[in-house]
Computed example of a mutant assay.
Amino acid sequence: MTLSHGELLYEGKAKRIYASADAQQVLVEFKNDATAFNAQKKAQLEHKGRLNCQISACLFELLERHGIPTHYVGVADATWMVVQRVEVIPIEVVLRNTATGSLCRETPIPQGTALDPALLDLYYKDDALGDPLLTDARIALLGVVSAELRQRLEALARQVNAVLQPFFKDLGLQLVDFKLELGLNQAGELLVADEISPDTCRLWDLSSTDANERILDKDRFRKDLGGVIEAYGEVCKRVQGACPEPRNCG
C-alpha cells in the first residue's frame, strides 16, 4: 500500500517522518534498517519495520489505557504510524531494571543484578558526541531542560516502567532495560514519543537460562547471534496476543 504523505521532514536510523494533511500530526514510516554502535554496523532485515511498528502501536495503546500520554494516534498501514507532531526533548531517558551492557562495563556491578528501584540515567541526544551521559551539573550548564521539566520527564518514564515491567512479565519476558524519547506537543503536553520495541528495549525470555538464547531484542544484532527477526517476531506474537488490534487511521 502506498500512503499519501507530504514532504520528508526527517530521516533517522530506523524511521522516516513525513508531513501530513493535519499540521499537528505527522506520518512515521518504520524502516527495515538495523543499526548498532551509532550506525557503524548496518543491515537490512526484512519485516523489521513492520514488527516494530505493530509492537509499538500495541504498547502505546497499553500506556494510553493506563493514563500515560503518548504521541501515538493510530496505525495507517503495517509499517506506518500516525502520531502527534512534537518537539523532541534532546534527552534520552534510560531505565534499567537489571544490570547489563554498558552499566556493567562502566561499574563493578555484576551482570544480572536486580535494580530496585530502577536506575534512571539521562543521556544527551547527539550522535556526533556519542550520546554522552548527563550529570546534574552538565544539565544545568547546557540548559537542555528546566528543573521542573526534568522532574516531569523522569516521573513519566517511571510510570512507563511501572506499566511495561509487569506487562512483559505476564508474557514470560523480562524487561531488562529500555530507552525513551519524550516530546512536547503544540499544547505543551509532555508525551512519550519515538517507539517502544525490541530496538529500544532489552527483553529476555524468562523460560530460557542460556545467556544468548534468552535475548529477544537488538542485542541479537549487536552480538551477531542471528535470529533477529525471529526474536522480534516472538515478541510481536506475545504482545499482540495480549492486546487489542491497534486502531487504524488509514
Results as ranks from 00 to 15, higher is better:
D126K: 13
G172P: 09
H66I: 08
L129K: 14
I109W: 14
P132R: 11
E7H: 02
R85F: 13
Q25A: 12
L8A: 02
R202V: 09
G49L: 12
E11T: 12
P110Q: 11
F60P: 15
E64C: 06
C58G: 07
V176A: 07
G101D: 00
R222T: 00
V73M: 06
S102A: 06
A23P: 03
D210T: 13
L190T: 07
R96D: 03
D22M: 11
V83A: 15
F60M: 15
A231P: 04
I91S: 03
C249I: 12
N38R: 02
V83S: 11
E7C: 06
I229A: 11
H71D: 03
T79M: 11
S207P: 01
I68S: 08
L133F: 00
L191E: 01
N161M: 01
A14R: 10
K13G: 07
R222K: 12
L142I: 03
A19K: 09
A231H: 11
G74K: 07
P90Y: 01
K42N: 06
L133W: 00
L216H: 01
E46C: 07
S207K: 10
R158N: 03
K48C: 07
E148D: 12
L133T: 06
V26I: 08
R152T: 01
V176E: 04
G6E: 00
D210R: 14
A140N: 02
K169N: 13
